[in-house]
Simulated scan of single mutants.
Amino acid sequence: MSYPNSQETINLIKELVSIPSPSGNTNEVITFVEKFLAEYNIETKRNRKGGLIATIPGNDDTNHRMLTAHVDTLGAIVKEVKPSGRLKLDLIGGFKYNSIEGEYCQIQTSSGKTYTGTILMHQTTVHVYKNAGTAERNQENMEVRIDEKVHTAAEVRKLGIEVGDFVSFDPRVQLLPNGYIKSRHLDDKASVGILLQLIKQITVEGIDLPYTTHFLISNNEEIGYGGNSNITPETVEYLAVDMGAMGDGQSTDEYTVSICVKDASGPYHYELRKNLVRLAEENQIGYKLDIYPYYGSDASAAIRSGHDIIHGLIGPGIDSSHAFERTHISSIENTTKLIYHYLQSKMLL
């Protein structure tokens, strides 16, 4: 028995986080995933929402599994081209303005041109603004300084920048020699990298799966509905692979796989959770059970949309979610191992 090469997984995650993909503008990263899977002759199809579904036939085609991870990220959209030649933003996803203050960004126009900029407080200059440190970090006070010679709205529009253009944040990814990976958008591209490596291994090594298994690379999770469709009637178990949330009172860490007991949507399926714990213990996989108080997943979206499924949620532990995120290679490894054994285990029928 062998697991996917963890360094290859980390390198793949680095590629994924480096592709801009705020919710609503994910074609480039979905195309990247599509091409990755095509190299191994994996059957894929896009749904109308733009997500990607890969299917591996199993020994039992009457009962299916589905696993999902989302490739869309937090981001922003141009709300207003200001008279000063700067941009007002509207946020995409659940995060705070203070987490993007000072961040480099890209503005992608509808024609496909890309410009760079920096997200700043209007009152940034301490030599001019007395309230530079105390002014509220909100939509009114924060703006994008475009890296072009523009001083009016007309000059900005001449570049092709307009209301509705997508803004993505510099991931600032770093792979450290002691095993840490720091980057924006590890939520949830770390999980996408894990699933892609597992799909590759299953195919290359000809591993038999007990059940036909679908892998949904969803592209609308950050706005709440990425995984609530394209679930086959035969699907019994539905496992979301998404980040484990860390903070005061949490047991999740950066070194184990987090198994979610409950989030803001309510408890996850008790028997599936116990089965995941059993698999972890039988295979000496480091894990933590946890509750995420302000969280929802593609699995909870699927339940809310009325699907009659057994749902669960696991993922690598990630520090400082929706801001400057970090995890460790050991968490990637433990998550990979648990999914590897889950895919080959008996289902709760």
Rank of each mutant, 00 (worst) to 15 (best):
M1V: 12
S2W: 10
G24R: 07
N25R: 14
F32S: 03
E43F: 07
R48C: 00
P57T: 05
D60K: 12
A69M: 05
D72T: 06
T73M: 09
T73W: 05
I77R: 12
V81Y: 02
K82I: 10
S84L: 11
G85T: 04
L91V: 15
S99M: 10
L120Y: 10
Q123H: 15
V128G: 00
K130D: 14
K130G: 09
E140I: 03
D147S: 13
T152W: 07
A153N: 04
A154R: 06
E155V: 01
E162I: 05
V167F: 05
Q174D: 09
L176K: 13
N178M: 09
N178S: 11
L195A: 06
D208M: 10
L209V: 04
I217H: 01
I217M: 08
N219A: 12
N220K: 09
E221N: 03
Y225E: 11
G227C: 08
E237K: 12
L239Y: 02
A240E: 01
S258R: 07
C260D: 05
K262C: 06
S265F: 04
Y268T: 00
Y268W: 05
R273P: 00
K274R: 15
Y287V: 02
K288S: 10
K288T: 12
K288L: 05
L289Q: 11
G296P: 03
A302K: 04
R304S: 01
L313F: 15
I314L: 09
G317P: 04
E325A: 03
T327H: 06
T327C: 12
I332Y: 00
N334Q: 14
H341Y: 15
Y342R: 06
S345K: 04
L348I: 15
L349F: 13
